[in-house]
Design a protein around this nucleic acid. Structure first.
Lengths: 139, 139
DNA sequence: AAAAACAATACTATTTTAGTATACTTTGGA
DNA sequence: TCCAAAGTATACTAAAATAGTATTGTTTTT
């Protein structure tokens, strides 16, 4: 029932870029330094965020990363899925070959877990980075 | 964002006992066989459920396990916590020593995750095994 | 063309997961 | 009384996931 460290880093990297605004390009090194994230690991994560269309990258001298969308268009769910793949609280719910109950994912437990999983996904989808920025201002 | 296989087995073992009713003693071997769970692994899990006060064990010939409470008094949350310990979607939220943001768990991201975590815990706490049994009957 | 920045792939150490093995204790019944 | 059936306790282990690191390559600006 855990998000990975990589996802936590991703959240903070996206928030960092969100503070700068949609277009602004920032070097990975700056984010790594400010957010206490190992540079090479951050680069790997930023590439995943890039493939998901959350950030854009610019190579060469003066390059870096910027948000590819406005902060209100990016949710925690988007970032989780970009880094970890589809959210699943039980592997059985995604891939029936792992359903050790031998009931093809149709037992009462797995139906219930499926509902809870849907709630979690919906909940993560309601939190945009614009919202997080606003809450941050409030302090 | 995953429950472990052990937790999944625990859910099914408790449901199996719940079907029998509160007092009835069932051998681990029977549960293992019916639910497709490795026996020794199940015994380990049942011991954890025992320490959490969810099941009672009986040793010796004719021994086994029974529910220690009525099915309506046992929730998915109880079982998750018995097997995995406290629910935490980010280790930083429980143990600040792991908070790599260097902000003592007080950044905007971690506040938001904390709210979501509370929702998940509340949600798991609303699903009792009585409820699951009832849903099962409905099929 | 040199240097700065990201890209891609492969590798590695650590931790967690998912069990297994071994030896022991309790209990009921022949 | 003693033995077999059941759970207890501790230690061990293989495989997978996590959290990085290393190396080499490509793009872009000056």
């Amino acid at each position: 029932m855990n998000l990975t460290q990589a996802t936590d880093y991703a959240f903070r990297a996206v928030l960092y870029l969100a503070r700068k605004g949609k277009g602004e390009v920032v070097e990975a090194q700056e984010i790594a330094g400010r957010e206490n994230i190992p540079l090479r690991f951050l680069l790997k994560i930023l590439r995943q965020l890039g493939q998901a269309g959350i950030v854009k990258s610019y190579r060469g001298v003066g390059g870096g990363f910027s948000l590819a969308k406005a902060p209100e268009e990016i949710t925690l769910l988007d970032v989780v899925e970009a880094v970890e793949g589809p959210v699943k609280i039980n592997r059985c719910l995604i891939d029936p070959q792992y359903c050790t109950s031998q009931r093809g994912g149709r037992c009462a437990i797995h139906r219930e877990l499926s509902l809870i999983q849907n709630d979690i996904i919906a909940r993560l989808g309601t939190v945009s980075f614009k919202k997080i920025l606003e809450r941050e201002q409030a302090f």
